[in-house]
């Protein structure tokens, strides 16, 4: 499985190849996977399995013990986060609390140019993500769903090659989750690049991802589509998780 052979798809988006080992506290985490553009991968597992650490490692936010991260033909594991072109939607979204929605979405462009130019560049993103009416609000004045849209617009406005979503639904109220999940799936499809989603919910994986990687205690215990997992759950955790989601 060498992702570099299929480095770019028809739309010109590169694939992601990850083969890493890292430490989080006492936990040793090791995982290897390829993600093709337009075919999102869900990393699923219990709390403390190391899911978010892997995402942080791909984004360059935590150091690797060993291994490689490549995006298309670019090897990025030695690059700092600001040069990787990896967009992240963080758990709880982590919008900049001191900036309006407009300036949050304009942030990446602001780092490369003037404030006026950045705000102009943000305008189409605000329109596409239905944020125009909220553009002058602070993140603290938004609902959970609005924050999710703002965080996604902020990440995608930077024109990343890879999109990482860390528990994107967990900060939302249960009543709006289904609706927001469908909306998020649409936006992820529109992005079309390599996408990795971290979640502990099979429902998220079913709607947002094509395939699933199960991580338990820092190690990959199963991989495949949800249907394949259902047909032959490899561990008690996988069986319980799927049963809970069917209930």
């Amino acid at each position: 499985m060498t992702g570099r052979d299929q480095a770019a798809d028809a739309a010109g988006r590169p694939g992601l190849v990850v083969d890493v080992s890292l430490s989080y506290g006492a936990t040793r985490i090791a995982a290897a996977f390829d993600v093709r553009p337009g075919h999102p991968l869900a990393i699923i597992g219990p709390n403390g399995a190391g899911k978010s650490s892997i995402i942080a490692a791909v984004a360059g936010l935590v150091p690797l013990d060993a291994g490689e991260v490549s995006i298309g033909s670019r090897r990025v594991d030695a690059l700092p986060p600001e040069r990787r072109r990896v967009g992240v939607v963080f758990q709880d979204y982590v919008l900049f609390p001191h900036l309006s929605v407009r300036d949050n979405v304009a942030f990446a462009a602001r780092m490369r140019g003037s404030r006026a130019a950045a705000r102009a560049a943000a305008e189409p993103w605000l329109e596409r993500y239905d944020l125009v009416g909220l553009a002058d609000r602070l993140p603290s004045e938004l609902s959970g769903g609005q924050r999710q849209r703002a965080a996604l617009a902020r990440a995608l406005a930077a024109d990343p090659d890879v999109l990482l979503l860390d528990e994107p639904m967990s900060a939302l109220d249960v009543e709006v989750r289904d609706e927001m999940r469908a909306e998020l799936a649409t936006h992820v499809r529109e992005f079309g690049g390599a996408t990795v989603l971290v979640t502990h919910s099979p429902a998220d994986a079913a709607t947002l991802a094509d395939s699933v990687l199960v991580l338990e205690g820092g190690a990959v215990t199963q991989r495949g589509t949800l249907a394949e997992l259902r047909a032959a759950p490899a561990t008690p955790y996988v069986r319980r998780m799927l049963a809970a989601s069917d209930a």
Binding site: L61, G87, F90, V94, P97, F107, A108
Partner: peptide
């Protein structure tokens, strides 16, 4: 984490 978010956005 806001600092990490800024770094992923190219800062």
């Amino acid at each position: 984490r806001t600092e990490a978010a800024a770094a992923t956005l190219g800062a």
